[in-house]
């Protein structure tokens, strides 16, 4: 087995689960495509910043880092885009990155694409954005809201992965909860230090964007998130 990755491996979700996660992903994907189109139509300059968020996801998901558990995992990189644009656009960007890795790197897979999009491109960005939006209302400095939001989103992604595997493989001596604890131990615990690294990297990049391009970032965010409520 060549691939040392962290998404659910090709062929490792039984067919009914593979189909269920794929179907569950579709409405989110539809909303994401609509939202992205709308954003680019309103402001063609958003394209560059969207590509920037995509590039960040690309880079971070190639960084396989060692963790205290003695195994490796990688950051998801979806937090930046979720913070800049809200969670909706990240479904599409995450899907593109996961497809690239499934087709060219045998990392993740086509049959597990729905499940992996659900964890990395839907739940992760939602948690990141929710935590970030909540903390922004407190007295915490902006960078701390970014860091905690990104780290918790990254962690949430791998908790969902563990849950998906435990749902698919509830057998074993200790039943569903036994399996859940085992998979959580593998994925989520390994991810803790890596989630912190993801939080830090996201802060560094958000900082640079704010230093040189604050106006555009903020106006695009208002447009993107304002549109969501309407």
């Amino acid at each position: 087995m060549l691939s040392f990755g962290m998404h659910i491996m090709e062929g490792f979700l039984p067919l009914p689960w593979a189909v269920a996660w794929f179907v569950l992903m579709l409405p989110f994907l539809y909303l994401s495509i609509r939202k992205t189109r709308q954003l680019v139509a309103q402001n063609p300059r958003a394209m560059l910043l969207l590509a920037f968020a995509g590039a960040f996801t690309f880079v971070l998901s190639a960084l396989k880092l060692p963790s205290v558990t003695g195994s490796c995992s990688h950051p998801t990189g979806v937090a930046l885009g979720a913070i800049l644009f809200g969670p909706a656009v990240m479904v599409l960007i995450g899907l593109i990155v996961l497809l690239f890795q499934a087709l060219l790197l045998a990392h993740g897979g086509l049959t597990t694409l729905g499940a992996n999009v659900m964890s990395m491109a839907i739940v992760g960005p939602l948690v990141t954005y929710g935590v970030y939006a909540l903390l922004k209302k407190t007295r915490l400095p902006h960078w701390a809201a970014v860091l905690i939001g990104a780290a918790l989103g990254s962690l949430a992604t791998y908790c969902v992965t563990a849950l998906q595997l435990a749902l698919a493989y509830p057998g074993g001596p200790d039943g569903f909860y036994g399996a859940l604890i085992k998979f959580t131990g593998i994925f989520a615990v390994t991810q803790v230090p890596i989630a912190i690294i993801e939080g830090i990297l996201t802060v560094l990049v958000v900082d640079l964007l704010y230093a040189y391009n604050r106006q555009e970032v903020e106006s695009l965010r208002d447009m993107s998130i304002g549109g969501e409520q309407a």
Binding site: M1, S3, F4, G5, M6, H7, I8, M9, F12, K64, P66, G70, S71, C72, S73, L165, F183, I186, F187, T190, Q191
Partner: peptide, 10 residues
């Protein structure tokens, strides 16, 4: 070994 977490899950 620093293998991937997915290998362990297998």
């Amino acid at each position: 070994e620093f293998g991937g977490a997915d290998g362990q899950a297998e």
